[in-house]
């Protein structure tokens, strides 16, 4: 492939612009192993602009989840830092909500759907009435109105993940972090949830960082695609996706812009895995 002809627009670091919500600055992570250390992340840099969806895509085992956990403040980076609204992240910050891949474990089976959504609010001195209003609104946003009194195990997998998304929305975070949120549901449900996320972004103007190993998903959802690769993992490319906020599973995926970025991401990821695949 001749990259010079198909090269998509590369995102220049926005540098100090006021609408950067979340930024990874030289984030590195090493884990001790029996004979030394294993470097997972090596100087990862990228920025997330308010109201945009940034997708992080890379091969399995590239440390995508580790990167997300660093951004969420759940683990501390070995070097570099994560900055949320100008403040360095040193632990789980107030303004971030996380949606985990394993919805069946992230929800509390002994709590009704509504109580699951309200759990984070109960610890934040949000009054009972407002809690209730927020959970109703969030459940409506994810298309689960009228299911508040059910229990998670009475819902399908896709609906359970919607509850987890509603829980994050009701929390009203500055940014929403999602770790392979649709990897454990069937293809149709996955497409539905992807479209739900795009609608939510338009309606609520939320900022989202979404980790995925699926290149199509990364390009379909992202305003910016951050491609990870190499060992230890570095940022291979930061690509701007100029597809607008309104996207369609069939039409968008046939657009030249989509195909161009898709093949570019694929080449970047394959380039580092050699010709073995």
């Amino acid at each position: 492939m001749s990259e010079s002809m198909t090269d998509p627009v590369t995102v220049e670091p926005a540098g100090g612009l006021p609408d950067v919500v979340l930024a990874a600055q030289g984030v590195s992570k090493q884990y001790p192993v029996p004979n030394g250390v294993r470097a997972v992340l090596d100087g990862v840099d990228f920025e997330v602009v308010r109201g945009q969806i940034a997708t992080i895509v890379g091969p399995s085992g590239a440390g995508k989840t580790t990167l997300l956990r660093c951004m969420a403040g759940l683990v501390a980076p070995s070097a570099g830092r994560v900055v949320l609204d100008g403040t360095p992240v040193t632990g789980p910050p107030d303004g971030l909500a996380v949606v985990f891949q394993d919805y069946s474990r992230s929800l509390m089976p002994w709590m009704s759907v509504r109580h699951n959504v309200e759990l984070p609010l109960r610890g934040r001195r949000v009054g009972k009435r407002e809690r209730h209003e927020r959970s109703l609104a969030a459940l409506a946003d994810v298309g689960l109105s009228g299911n508040g009194d059910l229990y998670p195990w009475q819902l399908s997998g896709g609906m359970q993940q919607r509850v987890a998304i509603a829980r994050a929305l009701a929390y009203r975070p500055e940014a929403l972090l999602m770790d392979e949120p649709f990897a454990s549901v069937d293809a149709q449900t996955r497409a539905d949830l992807e479209d739900l996320l795009l609608r939510l972004r338009i309606r609520r103007n939320i900022t989202i960082v979404l980790v995925t190993h699926d290149i199509d998903e990364a390009v379909y959802l992202g305003d910016v695609v951050v491609v990870l690769g190499g060992s230890p993992t570095r940022v291979e490319a930061r690509l701007q996706v100029c597809l607008g906020p309104d996207r369609d599973q069939i039409l968008t995926k046939a657009e030249p812009e989509f195909l161009k970025i898709r093949s570019h991401v694929l080449a970047k990821i394959r380039g580092h895995r050699g010709s073995a695949e």
């Binding site: 759940l74 789980p92 909500a97 985990f100 992230s106 509390m108 759990l119 610890g123």
Partner: peptide, 28 residues
């Protein structure tokens, strides 16, 4: 469950709510 503990930490659920609302029910 480690995932449940991650949820509690990332949403900054205070200790009393963690124990009474999640840890003890899950140990029930």
């Amino acid at each position: 469950d480690a995932t449940k503990l991650d949820v509690l930490r990332s949403y900054r659920v205070p200790a009393h709510l963690r124990i009474l609302g999640v840890v003890l029910p899950s140990a029930a």
